[in-house]
């Protein structure tokens, strides 16, 4: 009887997990970001993102799991340019996850907000609920002209029409690293062993990826940085991406 009660208590626990196995987190140092968009291109290559074409781009249907948001501050000539790389925040309390009627998006034991393409029926509710606008819908089945289909990543699926997709933190690389760790009979993945495509390609090393559960990991140190903040923190979505930015008080 007591086990049943314990089980019930476990199932009543908000978020279900006491602690994630890994708590994958990314920190992005905005003071270092130059807005070069190397991460965008790397993501495109790694994750088989379709190229939607000029007309569809004009209709705002481009699929870019990471994008550089560009904001101008002030008026010319006294003007400043700000960049924010925006990608799925892998929120612990993700608004998108409550929406899906078929569990196509859920929270896994690594603290990742996953999207299961095979289950998706395309209600698009998750995209409406997402405050960060980082979910992308396959309006058509996109095709790659020859010989571009030769460069598709074999570790990542190609999505069909009617399916929602978004940044996975390069889950295929996380998977490989975890498998490699198991093959070497290590209990955990080493810090810095996994680099999502965007992190790997960042020339200024503005992005750091790692496990927040490990207090000595580089990303944990970055997360403790006083410059750290979350985008749209007031919505209480508890995102997994920490942005670092020095606040300019001079105006």
């Amino acid at each position: 009887m007591s086990t049943a009660l314990e089980k019930f208590k476990k199932y009543r626990k908000p978020g279900y997990y006491d602690k994630f196995d890994y708590h994958w987190t990314m920190s992005i140092d905005l003071d270092r970001c130059t807005g070069c968009e190397a991460c965008v291109v790397a993501c495109q290559a790694e994750n088989n993102l379709p190229i939607v074409g000029e007309q569809q781009f004009a209709m705002r249907r481009e699929i870019k799991w990471i994008r550089i948001e560009r904001y101008w501050e002030g008026e010319y000539p006294d003007i400043k340019l700000q960049f924010i790389p925006m990608l799925c925040q892998h929120c612990d309390q993700a608004p998108c996850e409550i929406a899906c009627p078929v569990f196509a998006t859920y929270h896994n034991q690594d603290g990742l907000n996953t999207q299961v393409y095979n289950r998706c029926i395309g209600t698009r509710t998750c995209a409406v609920y997402c405050p960060y606008e980082v979910r992308f819908f396959n309006w058509f089945t996109y095709e790659w002209d020859e010989p571009l289909e030769q460069q598709l990543n074999p570790d990542v699926t190609v999505r069909e029409k009617g399916v929602m997709e978004k940044c996975t933190f390069c889950i295929q690389r996380i998977r490989q690293a975890k498998d490699a760790a198991k093959d070497d009979s290590r209990r955990r993945v080493r810090d810095g062993e996994i680099k999502p495509a965007c992190v790997q390609s960042c020339p200024t090393e503005a992005m750091v990826f790692g496990d927040l559960n490990d207090p000595d990991s580089q990303v944990s140190k970055m997360a403790r940085n006083p410059r750290g903040y979350h985008v749209l923190e007031e919505l209480n979505t508890t995102p997994s991406i920490v942005y670092l930015k020095r606040v300019h008080t001079d105006g």
Binding site: Y16, Y17, D92, Q93, P95, C96, Y106, T238
Partner: peptide
Amino acid sequence: TALTFILPTAGRPII
């Protein structure tokens, strides 16, 4: 049905 597949969503409990 929620217990046949434990799929946590949005920081909510399973039940």
